[in-house]
Write a protein that binds this DNA or RNA. Structure first.
Lengths: 253, 253
DNA sequence: CTGTTTATCGTCAGGCAGACGACTATGATC
DNA sequence: GATCATAGTCGTCTGCCTGACGATAAACAG
């Protein structure tokens, strides 16, 4: 193949972020309001252009910090407050996905605990946590003028759906559900994470047996808390294990 | 954010392919010899630039057809001979991964049955199936002048390793192992696929019970074959099921 | 006919998950 | 303070699945 410059069409490369958290028993995603065309006024996933000298993971971590103040969790470093799990999700490159130009977006998935300051954002654009159900259930042309209810801009509904599905399946066989919890948490709080992400009810007794019986999943800190009411519960931190074997089983049907 | 053209550094976007098959009890990947710098003469994964009006999946399917003659399997269409499974793997965008310019590569994973014509290739470059073990075990600067033994160009060793790991884990919980088999195959042939991909020995009796007992995994065609020697074996086609529940268990340790 | 190879069916014990009963320790309410 | 509601924790039992492995079946090679 000769060195033909016309064989290298220029692309813009962006990172888009699916940032998930669990708030009030619901799986929520971060959405930002677009301030300029196209899709002006519509909600979209946070994201931005990759800089010329920047790695993809670096760009995703930078965008995450800009939008939420969260740091990407470095597996080599000890646990840090305000750290989120960040991983690459998939890449979307339909030629018509952005009407302005040819854009390839490398989507990333971030999982964060419910922020004590639900006020994310660096700049002044409006930002909100929205239940993923609300963001995904909006059909095009449904006729509602409610600006909260328009479907996501670009192909972001598809990206969000892929990210949610990734999170749902990944908490089955990994300890990633702890990324939704604060540094110290109870078995019940972890169970509510699974229930919110999967949208099911789990038996508290079997769940307790399973997670406390899986080596390396949870390590007790010694403390207890009663913040949920009822009998005080033991506090745990995430253990070193990343893969759960055997996995957590998602109830079928 | 104002519309600043300098905020959109131009990227070249490529697709690279991890094409896997099982040959003679070994998991093999397709490698092509580079005919030009950089890494001239070294082996690399097949791939090429995404065209200006082309989707990523389309570009990957085109490259696959150019290199191997395989068609990407369309889940909506009935099974076709010479069809391979094709899925997006991950995207690699380190600023220094290509010394010539800023290139983002969207890697794809293809799984194909052992081709009756092991002579892949459209153009005249040399192409070969190599055991993944050979391609990955080559350390830099090992001193061997054997040109078959140099490490892969660019970051392709990393991409190949990621693709192999994806294949290894995905045959656990999906019926994808059948993508390595011809349209009709025996339980023993399917077992040898698992053994080659995982690099382990499996108990033929337990394997037979498991795969024939999973609804939708295999459907008997009625025929039998004796091509493996020994007692004639039933022939099967891949059933409609894509997800195996419960999954195949990869022996640990 | 005997040995070899591969396929297929069966048996058995151990482990794990779902269903669910029982008890514990707190705060809220009367 | 007794009672209740709430949430957490420990046990038991049963059924299913898996791993280990014996046994039989159907081909081919000598």
């Amino acid at each position: 193949m000769p060195y033909d410059p016309s064989a290298f069409p220029p692309f813009a490369v962006t990172v888009d972020l699916v940032v998930l958290t669990v708030r009030q028993h619901a799986l929520c995603a971060l959405a930002v309001r677009r301030g300029e065309p196209p899709f002006q006024g519509r909600w979209a996933l946070p994201g931005g252009f990759v800089r010329g000298d920047e790695d993809l993971a670096t760009a995703a971590a930078r965008e995450l910090a800009e939008e939420t103040g969260l740091l990407a969790h470095d597996p080599a470093a000890p646990a840090v407050a305000n750290a989120a799990h960040l991983e690459q999700l998939a890449t979307y490159g339909d030629p018509k996905r952005d009407p302005r130009m040819r854009v390839v977006s490398v989507a990333h998935l971030a999982l964060a605990p419910d922020l004590p300051a639900p006020r994310p954002g660096g700049d002044a654009r409006s930002v909100r946590w929205a239940p993923v159900e609300d963001l995904l259930d909006q059909e095009v042309g449904y006729g509602r003028e409610d600006e909260q209810a328009a479907p996501l801009a670009f192909d972001h509904a598809r990206i969000l759906a892929d990210g949610v599905e990734r999170a749902r399946s990944k908490i089955e066989y990994s300890s990633l559900a702890t990324a939704f919890c604060p540094q110290e948490f109870t078995v019940g709080e972890l169970r509510r994470v699974y229930e919110a992400v999967w949208g099911v009810a789990l038996d508290p007794r079997n769940f307790h047996r399973k997670v406390t019986g899986t080596p390396g999943f949870l390590v007790p800190t010694g403390g207890t808390t009663t913040r949920q009411g009822g009998r005080p519960a033991q506090l745990f931190r995430a253990g070193g294990a990343t893969l759960l074997n055997p996995p957590m089983l998602r109830p079928e049907a």
